[in-house]
Write a protein that binds this DNA or RNA. Structure first.
Lengths: 158, 158
DNA sequence: CGTCGACAGACAACCTGGTTGACCGATCCT
DNA sequence: AGGATCGGTCAACCAGGTTGTCTGTCGACG
């Protein structure tokens, strides 16, 4: 396998998985969720987070994070609330539907995972994941997928 | 490994590989190339192609393909020439620097590939790639990575 | 031979997600 | 108290993609 093919297939596998999950999500009453949103919800997490924290977790500027929160809020998946401790901060937290999506998403990911484990065999799958783990262990997980493809990598945010 | 983690790691591996190649490319006199451009150059290939062919190969609209060609042309990697057989068609072809980039890119991908084969071991790597191949074999290779992340999937192009 | 439909490419307008830059109020620290 | 700093938002802009429209060229058929 050439290096280029390897890269392509890695991406195809990733995309296949994510697509599958989003089809399932759409069929269960959440047709508007986009992969970006999923990442963001994940980053918010059950404990909530501020826009700034989100920004660093997602590897984007705080403005971009703010916009994502706007979108999620419009979809009804998160809510913004003021922090009584510090009037500057606004903590965004999952709504009921928000955590429902998060839970469903996790379930569907696991289901897709289980399916391909079944097709390739238990042992192979284990070995595969082991290799994948060692490859990606030192890599910092950055989720700013969209911008990364097109942009120069310069990013500063004040 | 949870399904979500699997997806994340697949993406991280892909991204890691691509990033590495583009760092190498930048160090060898091609700092402006973006992943998108790489895909497009690949799609043009040594034989050249029309904008429409590019569009279907990349899985985007012909207008988008046209814009990409504009960018590549501005960078000096491709040239547009009229087709003497059919005055409607304009075939885009790689310039000398264009095919240089393509060649370098292939070499760097292979180098990165070889490096991780070395780190995980020959046998593991082989098994890994075998699994990856079976997973992604039925998947149609679509390279419209950027739009896929944010858009709804509705796409029609006349 | 002429005409009418299909095809290839380009232009314009718009959307999304991201970025930079500037700004405002709240907090902290001296 | 007062200046620096932090958290968040507004505004302008850019890249890449999409839809819709239009022009020029082929080709096939009457």
């Amino acid at each position: 396998m050439s290096g280029g093919e390897l890269a392509l297939r890695l991406f195809a596998a990733f995309r296949h998985l994510v697509d599958r999950v989003h089809v399932d999500l759409a069929e269960h009453g959440h047709p508007r969720v986009r992969p970006t949103h999923g990442f963001a919800l994940q980053a918010v997490g059950p404990t909530g987070a501020t826009a700034g924290e989100l920004a660093t977790r997602l590897g984007v500027t705080k403005q971009a994070a703010g916009k994502t929160v706007d979108a999620l809020e419009a979809l009804g998946y998160v809510e913004r609330a003021g922090d009584p401790q510090d009037a500057r901060r606004k903590i965004v937290a999952l709504t009921a539907t928000g955590s429902e999506v998060l839970g469903l998403s996790a379930r569907f990911f696991d289901r897709a995972h289980a399916q391909w484990v079944a097709t390739v065999g238990d042992e192979q799958a284990g070995a595969f994941e082991q290799v994948l783990r060692t490859i990606t262990d030192e890599v910092t997980p950055r989720l700013d997928a969209a911008s990364w493809l097109g942009d120069d990598g310069r990013r500063q945010d004040t």
